[in-house]
């Protein structure tokens, strides 16, 4: 179950970051493409945390 969850998260992130970072199919993985993929995953996680905090604060204000 946990493994299925992990795999489906990796599928979703690869989907998003592939579209953002891989604009051209090269004969081998380019260093700059790899850096973009790493940053993309990190920023996507940052964005999730930011939005979770912001939604949490709003829920707090409503009380």
């Amino acid at each position: 179950q946990r493994r299925a969850n992990f795999q489906s998260t990796v599928h979703q992130y690869t989907d998003v970051c592939w579209d953002k970072c891989i604009t051209k199919i090269r004969p081998a993985m380019d260093k700059s493409d790899e850096v973009c993929l790493t940053n993309c995953v990190e920023r996507f996680l940052d964005s999730t945390i930011l939005l979770l905090n912001s939604l949490g604060q709003q829920a707090g204000h409503r009380k």
């Binding site: 992130y13 690869t14 970051c17 592939w18 199919i25 493409d33």
Partner: peptide, 24 residues
């Protein structure tokens, strides 16, 4: 050729994403 390369790149991308996610 494009399909072969694209498939290799996609699998590499999957690995990079997976490793980054696990490290984080």
């Amino acid at each position: 050729t494009c399909l072969q390369r694209c498939s290799d790149r996609y699998q590499e991308a999957w690995n990079v994403v997976s490793n980054t996610y696990l490290r984080r």
